[in-house]
Design a protein around this nucleic acid. Structure first.
Lengths: 336, 336
DNA sequence: TTGTAAGCGTTATCAT
DNA sequence: ATGATAACGCTTACAA
């Protein structure tokens, strides 16, 4: 039921091999022949069969993107960057979420990868996540986004630095009782949240300030979580005068809690986030902006490059993208 | 370099045909044989070659999702619903954006669909978008999400009703000078924005209120756009006392503009949106909530069903999902 | 530069 | 219930 390469070959009076070569732009094809074949293929409305091509060549032209969430800002933004690159590269993007929209875990992606894609892009899974381990064990070309591991190519920001910058900003404003809204309490090392916490600690210690465990709360990277965390911080005997939220979305929740307690971010209390979420400008939130879309874009470019250069071990190493502190109204000098 | 069906067949002492049948769960296979084959396939770590299977069967097991944006809330939320269903159905999800992250148009998706997927899901493209037309012209099983057209299966809300409900809410609060923040000025008919506008008109006319063209502005469904639109409305000689924004994100922008003009949503001026965006609760925005994730979920389910039931014309018709007005603090009775 | 033909790994149609 | 085998549509040595 479809035009095949054979039909084109017959119509052009050449062999299927020549059509294949001509259409794929391979060298050693007479340019007149090539043009004729292209024209005829067009006239016949010929479309190559990916399945046949893949079966014969062994390459799928597909890249899988594995992500814990699809609908959250960070992940969808990374994804948009990835998609634009893969699109231009003519590769198919297979989207696989590791958890349901409700957050439950699902079928492990690794089995669904084998023989199906040429490469894999993983967004912000904890380094020792079992799903991630299984994917890496597949041994296929892989790039990590928003996390980094030794010996696996990755694109990420310097999370320690991000945490350090955010905290230092608060310190520079004269704050001393600085709270943190962290991700989850128990978490594997080398995650973004851990690194940001280390940056926080470094800044605090560097300024000879006390890291008070009572001023740490967990917001699980959600708005609601941030709100709860901030509420917890505000009900301390001596609440913080400034708070570092590890993500903008948690910061949004924190803002709500502050207002509920009659506090205005940037007046009685200061708040800084991390991300550069679309809404952060709108909400006048000081934040450490990370180039989220570029994270995806650059990782995808690196992967495509690796896939093209048949050399399996041109893995390319860990790439660090810069962050930038954007000071807005949510932070202000400590009131005397 | 991989285990093939032949290897499994040899190891099990049966033919490849039997292995194929056994592994796919087809009938007419001795249960003992089937179990043995399954065990051996497992031991050998056999993974079927999708390319070969697709080439031989003619089915790809892939569904393409075509969307104008990936990183916007509505689209990523629909996408997450779609993904969860396709995942459970064991189908591959090919993601294709129609515009770049910057909003530019790109390669038309239609050519990239042929022979590559079994079905297509289209998210919120205007009915007469040329890309959409080309996709439909392919004649493959297709479901539309967030838009509807005669004779093409679709899942959407009743946008006229949504606009009507939002507006009526403002009217019920006693407002008479009601502004609208629309999408784009020139737009094809039968789009969500047009329908919502019609609902707005209906409500206004039903209450014998004047639809003042001066109280209409365009926000292009973005935060920044909403802000500009609201600013325009507020600089009218006689500004509106209430505003219907056709999306929550535009409403967010509108809120910012209101505050910039010293107005508090829900006090001197009322504001209602449409969507049920995550941030709307946080920002205390009254809105007409639509079940965005369900839109994607249900459309995907319908498509999967259609693809399974080999009957090509079980297209299933247009499905309408309900919306719900959630009254929050951004709307209040008109002040005398 | 072009053609020949042997795969690629399944599925599906007949037989048995 | 199982087996043999011809597709499926392309790529890629190898020849010419």
């Amino acid at each position: 039921m479809g035009i095949t390469i054979k039909d084109v070959a017959d119509a052009a009076g050449v062999s299927t091999a020549t059509v294949s070569r001509a259409l794929r732009g391979l060298p050693n094809v007479d340019s007149a022949t090539r043009e004729r074949i292209q024209r005829i293929a067009g006239e016949l409305d010929y479309v190559i069969s990916p399945s046949a091509s893949r079966l014969a060549s062994g390459r799928t032209g597909c890249v899988a993107v594995i992500t814990p969430y699809i609908a959250r800002w960070y992940f969808s933004t990374v994804l948009s960057g990835v998609e634009s690159v893969l699109q231009s590269a003519g590769m198919d993007l297979l989207l696989m979420s590791v958890s349901t929209p409700d957050g439950q875990h699902r079928l492990p992606p690794a089995p669904r990868l084998r023989r199906r894609v040429d490469g894999v892009l993983v967004i912000a899974l904890p380094p020792q996540d079992s799903q991630l381990q299984e994917v890496l064990a597949l041994g296929m070309p892989t790039s990590l986004i928003g996390l980094s591991m030794p010996s696996v190519p990755s694109v990420a920001i310097d999370d320690v630095l991000a945490g350090q910058i955010a905290t230092q900003h608060l310190i520079n404003l004269g704050h001393e009782r600085i709270g943190v809204i962290n991700g989850a309490p128990i978490v594997s090392p080398y995650t973004a949240e851990n690194d940001r916490y280390r940056g926080f600690e470094q800044a605090m210690l560097g300024a000879h300030l006390t890291v008070d465990p009572m001023l740490e709360a967990y917001g699980y990277f959600t708005i609601a979580g941030g709100e709860q965390a901030m509420t917890a911080l505000l009900t301390q005997k001596v609440p913080p005068t400034a708070v570092f939220a590890m993500s903008d979305e948690m910061a949004f929740g924190a803002m709500k809690a502050m207002r509920a307690h009659g506090l205005t971010p940037g007046k009685e209390i200061s708040l800084v986030g991390v991300d550069g979420h679309d809404m952060s400008e709108f909400l006048d939130l000081t934040t450490v902006v990370q180039p989220v879309q570029d994270l995806g874009r650059i990782a995808a470019e690196a992967l495509v490059l690796q896939l093209r250069s048949a050399s399996p071990e041109v893995a390319g190493d860990s790439i660090r993208l810069p962050t930038q502190l954007i000071v807005r109204g949510s932070t202000s000098p400590r009131r005397a």
